[in-house]
Design a protein around this nucleic acid. Sequence first.
DNA 1: TATATTTGTGCAAACGTTTGTATTAAATAT
DNA 2: ATATTTAATACAAACGTTTGCACAAATATA
Lengths: 337, 337
Amino acid sequence: MTKKVTIKDIARELNTNYSTVSRALNDSPKISDATKQSVLKQAKLMGYQPNSFAQKLKKGYSNTIGLIVPRINRVFFSNVIHGVETIAKQQGFNVIICQSNESVKDEEDNVKTLLSNNVAGIIMSISKETQNESSFQEILTNKIPFVMFDRALNNLVSNQVVNNNFKGAYEVTEHLIKQGYQKIIHFSGPLYINIYQDRLNGYKKALADYQIAFNPDFIIENTLTKDKGIAAVEELLKQKVDFDAIFASGDYSALGAILCLRQHHILVPEQVGVAGFANEPFTELLDITSVEQFSTDMGKSAASLLLEKVQRKEISDQYQNIEILPQLIIRKSTQKL
Amino acid sequence: MTKKVTIKDIARELNTNYSTVSRALNDSPKISDATKQSVLKQAKLMGYQPNSFAQKLKKGYSNTIGLIVPRINRVFFSNVIHGVETIAKQQGFNVIICQSNESVKDEEDNVKTLLSNNVAGIIMSISKETQNESSFQEILTNKIPFVMFDRALNNLVSNQVVNNNFKGAYEVTEHLIKQGYQKIIHFSGPLYINIYQDRLNGYKKALADYQIAFNPDFIIENTLTKDKGIAAVEELLKQKVDFDAIFASGDYSALGAILCLRQHHILVPEQVGVAGFANEPFTELLDITSVEQFSTDMGKSAASLLLEKVQRKEISDQYQNIEILPQLIIRKSTQKL
DNA sequence: TATATTTGTGCAAACGTTTGTATTAAATAT
DNA sequence: ATATTTAATACAAACGTTTGCACAAATATA
């Protein structure tokens, strides 16, 4: 590596002191315009790049925040990352991204890495395994700002940015009812995860509001993949269950359902309406009704919230809870009318 | 923020010198096991976290690499990021991820940011706008290891990890021919971008090898979105062009083609075979033949290559060119037989 | 026993900044 | 003309590490 140019080099070249150079580069009012000009010019000439480590060491804080997600290459999370990056960049912050791979152990390691990198704050969505705050206890004791998004621990009070899953599910169900569907199956995720529980509750509430009796047999748990969606529909048909719509808590199972129905020459949406949740890119391509979660906005909100806390520097005990309102995206798969 | 614990604090507590503490923490052979034990214990007790800025400043290098991609939230790139992260983490490196948003200006800014963060090396895929090396001239003069992936400049000699687009396209075309398709339309991207040119060349070569005359009218440029795919098929049908297959240089246009054909009650694959390129997630869901580019592996290769150069520390003039072999994924949309 | 070697620890400089204080020169006020 | 203020720059310490060198004590060699 070639020797790096430092402010001392610039100072030597200009026959001045390096503190002058430092102040000139930082546009201090104590420095005359003339010297500022010449310093800037010389710095450019010599290709000066400030050594950020020295700066951060001296200043005692960094312009870097940490972001921990279960997996980077998931549409939802990569959109969140995009949002976080955008806001952070705007405010002159860098982002170090870590993935927990849905493991508590990796999550702990990530926290350690971020802390020893002196990040100014941390944004995270917990792994599926995470049941308590042990893995990020260190963040709390280190007293740096901390924001959780999407998946959050119920029992932990903290800054949060979450989606209103209840409302999203309510709207899907309401829409189905208004389209004339009456016997609505619900494909759910594991109910110990709060987002799926919330969606189920939204579904129930809508039924109740429209005086449709809730049938527990219509809830099929753990059907969030394409294959499980297919299998579930097969089973429904085999059992000759009388249904006219499916609200799936995930887009992949909605897709599976549609493919299976089509296989059996059952028309969607004429005979059976199908809706998903998450608005995965393929739902637009295939005209499947779904719920947009505004993942990029979620990332932006989380970053804004965190950076606000970071800038303030005082860690208050005031926690903020930001709710992202999801939006029902109506497409052909549920448009009977 | 609470005051950070430093090695001096630990030393004071143990009535020893801070250099001893430093060496103990770094497991230096010059320190007795007894002191190492007590230092480690005390460090843990006091919740010591090394100040990475001080370390990096002193050592003069960082365990961070930079990664510049056009967009983070694209399946292809998020997979590459995933691959890079995985390898980097394994070798104790962090990754700072930047997005150029397909703009040369942002690309330049990214480069500056990364350099002032003293990254040990940089991996990048150029933006669509980028025509020459001006935006990363600084990397080259800074003499840090540098690897380009996927989109690379032809005229710049550098370390590269690229996909063999020629071969991928050849195999798709060959497969179509072997399935009995003879009149194969090719939907291409902008031909000034080398990857699309390479794919077109692969297509031509396959035709030639199987004694099928090349018809320039069968090449439809700039048809890489779903809508453009639909429009192109509409046009073909309107013009009553006689074709029995479509090889699209991108999956979205292949999808558009299929949707449009289906609309016109033309059977896929029985009457017209359709293949895409990139193996986007939805192609699996919809059983569309495509070409897997192994984006995660591409990221892994790029990271391994870069880190190898970084570890060596000497910037050699030897550049490496790694080729990723794509794989044809045959699905229903082209299986006439 | 005297000397050489090994082992473990302490001292201090250095990495490249920022920033409080001291110093100088110039400008203004008395 | 001298005293005072102001503006611009210089000096030096500090941030928290790593690491070469010096040194003392313990052990090995003669």
